[in-house]
Simulated assay, not measured.
Amino acid sequence: MDQTIFAENFINKIFGIVLLFVLLKQLHWDISTIGFKKYGLVKTILKGFALALFSFFIAYTIECSILYFQEKKIYLGFFITGFSLTGVGSIQTGIGFVFINIFFNIINVIMEEGTFRGLFYQLINTRYSLKTALFIQALLFGIWHIVTPLHNWIDGEISGMGFVSLSIGYIILAGMMGVKWGLLYRMTGNLYAGMADHFFNNCIATNLLHVVSNTGIDEYMIFRILIAQIFSFAIVVFLWKGQKIEGLK
């Protein structure tokens, strides 16, 4: 898998976008129904990027501090790598690879946010409460990400028990992210803030901006992502509760 530019990860995202539009037509919905609104595009994108920048600034600072106190030489590297739970893959430094990475991640957030926070959220909400819809779409989003440890298991890089433990961890982490982006959707009325935060996590913090030391690359990437996501999740929940209280005045 993933031996060419047009790997299965790209193909399934394109297929997902096509299927999303087919389903919208069947439901007689337009794209605004699932959060692709005409208003607030720039404003909410900037909010999403601000949330990601602040959260990952904290995460990168903690990561670099840990390596510094271990007396390692560290610097930030800007290059392309494929994300893996078992270590860094091939490194690409060409500008063409950077643009391809950006393009693929735009496709990714359109498909995933449009499907989970958009279509699934609205479909579930037609029968159940907004709260139930929020948590079900987040659970589905978590299950969707089992494919990452599944790759490693199929390739023999992890054991069966490793696959189970990583899958549970992924469901929890991705599920938490799904709740966060769902709350951003409810607070802003569109998908763009969540898409910006999602894009920054996948494109910048995972694939482009790396912590390099004399003993390796991204040795604490999982902890970096975990710290940033927990921190940003707490911010969004705090803002959500504040908005609810304000709405009751």
Rank of each mutant, 00 (worst) to 15 (best):
N201I: 08
C203A: 14
V236M: 02
I17Y: 10
N202Q: 06
A52N: 14
V98H: 11
V147N: 05
A205G: 12
E246F: 13
Y220V: 05
K13H: 13
G162H: 09
L46D: 01
F141P: 03
N105K: 09
I34M: 08
Q70S: 10
L123N: 00
I34K: 02
G16C: 01
A228N: 02
S129E: 01
E63C: 11
T4P: 11
E71L: 13
T206E: 00
L226Q: 11
G82Q: 00
G40L: 02
S167C: 07
L226F: 14
K25F: 00
I245Q: 08
L248I: 14
G142I: 05
I80T: 14
G142W: 06
E8I: 11
Y75P: 05
I66Y: 07
F116R: 01
Q26R: 10
F49I: 14
F116L: 00
G82R: 04
I34H: 05
G162L: 10
F10N: 06
F83V: 10
N105W: 06
N108I: 05
S84W: 11
G156D: 05
I107T: 13
F135I: 04
M1I: 13
R127K: 07
L140A: 12
I34Q: 01
N207M: 08
A133G: 11
G48Q: 10
S213K: 07
L248F: 13
K47M: 04
F238A: 12
M177F: 01
N108W: 03
F57G: 15
Y128F: 15
L239N: 13
F99E: 10
T206I: 03
T33Q: 13
L248C: 01
F223R: 03
L173H: 05
Y60F: 15
R186C: 12
S84N: 06
L23N: 03
F10I: 13
Q92K: 13
F141G: 02
I31E: 15
G16Y: 04
L134Y: 03
K249I: 14
A205T: 13
F120E: 09
Y75A: 15
I31Q: 13
G175S: 04
G96F: 14
L67E: 07
L51Y: 15
A133L: 06
T61A: 09
L130W: 12
G247K: 08
H151R: 04
L184H: 02
T81K: 00
D218H: 09
L208M: 08
V179E: 06
S167H: 01
L67H: 14
G175V: 04
T115S: 05
W144A: 03
V98N: 09
G160Y: 09
Y121V: 08
M195E: 01
V18P: 08
T188I: 07
E63M: 10
G77E: 00
I146D: 02
V18I: 14
G94M: 08
Y192A: 04
A196D: 06
G178H: 02
S159F: 03
Y60P: 03
F97N: 12
H145C: 02
T188A: 10
E8A: 00
F199W: 12
V42M: 06
L209F: 15
F120G: 01
Q92V: 00
E219H: 01
I102H: 08
G160C: 04
I168N: 04
M187E: 12
F238T: 09
V211P: 08
G169A: 03
F83K: 04
